[in-house]
Nucleic acid binder design. Sequence first.
DNA 1: CTGAAAGCGCTTACAG
DNA 2: CTGAAAGCGCTTACAG
Lengths: 339, 339
Amino acid sequence: MKEVTLKQIAENLGISVTTVSKALKNYTDVSKKTKALVKEEAKKLNYKPNVFAVNLRTKESKTVGLIIPEVVHHFFSSVINGIIEEAERKGYLVIILQSNESYELEKKQVDLLISKRVDGIMISLANDTVDTSHLLEVKEHDIPLVMFDKISKLVQCSKIIINDRQAAYNATKVLIDSGCKKIAHFRGALLPQNSIDRFLGYKKALEDHGLQYDSSMVYMCERVDYEDGRKAAEKLLADKKEVDGIFAITDMAALGAMTVLKEHGIKVPNDISVMGFSNWFLSQAITPALSTIDQPGYEMGRKAFKLLRKEMKAKKAGVVLPPQTKVLDTQVIIRESTK
Amino acid sequence: MKEVTLKQIAENLGISVTTVSKALKNYTDVSKKTKALVKEEAKKLNYKPNVFAVNLRTKESKTVGLIIPEVVHHFFSSVINGIIEEAERKGYLVIILQSNESYELEKKQVDLLISKRVDGIMISLANDTVDTSHLLEVKEHDIPLVMFDKISKLVQCSKIIINDRQAAYNATKVLIDSGCKKIAHFRGALLPQNSIDRFLGYKKALEDHGLQYDSSMVYMCERVDYEDGRKAAEKLLADKKEVDGIFAITDMAALGAMTVLKEHGIKVPNDISVMGFSNWFLSQAITPALSTIDQPGYEMGRKAFKLLRKEMKAKKAGVVLPPQTKVLDTQVIIRESTK
DNA sequence: CTGAAAGCGCTTACAG
DNA sequence: CTGAAAGCGCTTACAG
């Protein structure tokens, strides 16, 4: 099938390419009659503008990039849906790249997006990300950038986050309020800000309620997944710790922990209460249903794109916008894994 | 930051744009000395070709599209990883679009990919997809197309599939071999070929082993998810069916069923054996661990891109390749949910 | 070995 | 209201 071009339409109608172009874009200086004629012909020939040419002329791709640590993750997939929803409404395509929590991959993907000349980039950092020079490069290319969820305080750009410290504080408080005195924390890797913040929220809650913080009650879940939760729980049992509550950094880690506890005949919540984080879709389905913190992923995605859009518009208008940070609310969800 | 162009480099070096372009692409008719000079300057200025211009000239975007019913799904995410792995190696970017099992969305996304002029499209159909005219449009635009997993027999193009009928037969046979006599099937929607094939495999296995096929033992799981599995199991219990085995179309549906059985004090596998399909990553983690069929998602993804690549190459060379269909092997995995 | 020139398919400032 | 012309930044057939 031969591709239809403006030239084609112009020739068929015996008018100029200029007029055809302007007619299709509803310029005011084209007569109604001509517009109607052109549009009819375009429809008849099923004309689709050649985006390659449009991109080159307008220096815009109407495409934005999204880099995320892990796609198969309920929270991130909610974010993705929020972003796509908003982007589609504004005529943007979203290119999704997964960093697999790897700094090296993340760097490559940033480069790829820059070289593809996307109009803007949204990113949630990998756990491994140690420095942010690749993000400075984005700024140098004058590409609007929005960070969300897993951000770095070192990068000057707009951000959408939740108050991880407060949310973790609330989660820990659920355990305290239900009578737990010996609360362990399964934390995430050392680098990510949200893993730090959740740890600090946990610690603060203990201190505010007269419970002694004990660093040996903090277990590491590097990848914050099911397997890590299992391992941490096994270590905790091997350590013969006296524990009556666990606050895990993610629902998956909590689920891994609960499975191990079950295997050892330890009852949740009677012997040990368990609190998760992020409200994974199956958290209400497992037995006992997991108490957790709900993160507004969809909302976060929508807000992230809206912020990016604002910056893309500003750039086009030659305006410089000061970076802004939006903090979204989280919600405590109490189910069966806590008393 | 001003973007660096070939012209820029040419001016700096006092040579022509033509020579710069050829030097960077290692044309044989450029002197070694000039090449070295050009490359050095390009590196110094951090030159990146403008893809918009390259696309327009070469009529290629080095980008392929992928449409998938659901990203947050272990099987599909394996496929995605396989595709991206192979695509990256060949310098292609993959645009992933999620149809959410909706025919309307799928059509829109096909249109979007066509209008973005991707070099090729890979697709796994939505459950709702009733006709395939949107795929014919892809062929009309002469864009290479590969279908995988959820395919339509009506579309003339290359395909990568598993032998769903045989795999379901094998799954059912596991139940039969372990002594089950009254085997229910939780099937998928009526349209998708793989849902039909799995049903047929189930039926055939019963018949081959002297068990009566009974249509009232077949329950519908429209979205083949956890919730559907729960509902089907509840209906089955409400029907007071005598059942000693369930073959569910997906692991998620199987998990939903097992949860309901547990809630009713029914033991798996002692009272009822359960067989899943697709080997979801948590299937080995749940209690009892789920017996299932392993689908080679990663492999499927790699093969899908390779096939697409072959067709893209053929198109460029002006050759027409006959469509081919590859059938991948599956594997029976026996864990604790079957005797 | 080097380069002038045409052209990919659009958009838009400008002239009439 | 219409259109000729320039130009976005490349690639490549062709001439020298």
